[in-house]
């Protein structure tokens, strides 16, 4: 379980500080794939960075915190300040630009173990790695290659292998398949799902692609303008979304055999530099009233385990006339 307590994270810029994550408060149960969705700039990646404990300038934790309740290590209090020592052992990370995330002039074998303690038995570890990557449809020799000798798909499998080999409790994945073509992308996603099923770790999976989320996520977290706006079981979020923004994201998904023009989400999110009052989605929301513009909706449990921040959660959206 990961507990986010009123997380506020800021970036320092020349214009001053800006809150990129603004008061996210929720509990992520263990053993799930949690999809995180939202438009770019909504704070998805920043949220991952905070959970990972990668708080380097200009990113800083302003208030709140993360409790990592590791499955078998209850006595020790782990915080964003101390999580770094568990990197790639109990919490790992699959980066966005995984194509270029391997050092081009060092053999992959070395990059697999160079973060371990100097006294660790690296040869023995590497033998086990060789076994492991075979399960991932990677040839054992891949370990002795340089990154440029592998195809894009193989490199990405290697990144997944690296992130899962030490069986971490938490895996953070930041758009890990964006740069790949569709067929390879599917292979990687299936691999990730398979490994998660075996190891039962918690995977936080960031993607702006709702289609991918529909296929693999157990739970969905929707973010909008630095805030969490909806969180719940995927099945329920997709079938009966509470927040109008979620509904609009889902409506933008194409269905096979459906020849209607898809409805995109029109407009743009507000600038985080503005003085934001009320509901941040109000300007784009078809249901918005004066109340929405004045009063910020609380993030509350509308149905069992299904949270949303909306005054009119669950209300039907007005039908949009197809434009001529």
């Amino acid at each position: 379980m990961i507990r986010l307590n009123q997380l506020v994270a800021t970036y320092t810029t020349v214009r001053g500080t800006v809150k990129a994550v603004d008061g996210v408060d929720l509990e992520i149960p263990s053993g799930n794939i949690v999809g995180i969705a939202g438009e770019s700039g909504c704070g998805k990646t920043t949220l991952l960075k905070v959970i990972y404990g990668d708080l380097v300038y200009p990113l800083a934790l302003d208030s709140g915190g993360v409790d990592y309740v590791f499955a078998d290590d209850d006595r020790q209090e782990v915080t964003t300040e101390t999580i770094q020592q568990y990197w790639f052992k109990r919490i790992s990370y699959i980066p966005q630009s995984s194509m270029s995330s391997l050092n081009p002039v060092v053999k992959i074998r070395k990059q697999f173990v160079d973060f371990l303690e100097p006294k660790a038995n690296k040869e023995e570890t590497l033998d086990r790695v060789r076994q492991f990557i075979r399960q991932l449809d990677l040839p054992a020799e891949a370990l002795d290659s340089y990154p440029h000798q592998l195809s894009g798909g193989m490199r990405q499998r290697m990144m997944v292998a690296l992130a899962t080999f030490f069986q971490p409790d938490i895996i953070l994945a930041d758009e890990p398949t964006t740069a790949l073509d569709v067929v390879v992308q599917k292979g990687i996603l299936l691999l990730l799902v398979r490994l998660q099923r075996q190891m039962q770790n918690t995977v936080l999976f960031v993607s702006h692609d709702m289609g991918v989320h529909y296929q693999i996520s157990h739970r969905m977290l929707i973010m909008y303008a630095a805030k969490a706006v909806e969180f719940g079981e995927s099945a329920e979020v997709f079938s009966a979304p509470l927040h109008p923004y979620t509904r609009m994201l889902i409506d933008s998904l194409p269905n096979i055999g459906d020849d209607h023009m898809r409805q995109g989400v029109s407009g743009r999110p507000p600038s985080l530099w503005d003085d934001l009052r009320g509901c941040r989605f109000a300007a784009r929301c078809p249901l918005a009233t004066q109340r929405c513009r004045d009063e910020e909706p609380a993030f509350i449990e509308h149905r069992p385990n299904h949270f949303a921040a909306c005054h009119y959660a669950g209300d039907e959206l007005p039908k949009v006339e197809p434009s001529a």
Partner: peptide, 10 residues
């Protein structure tokens, strides 16, 4: 990216 990732590996 590979230097950033190395740092994130610890």
């Amino acid at each position: 990216p590979y230097v950033v990732f190395a740092r994130l590996k610890g």
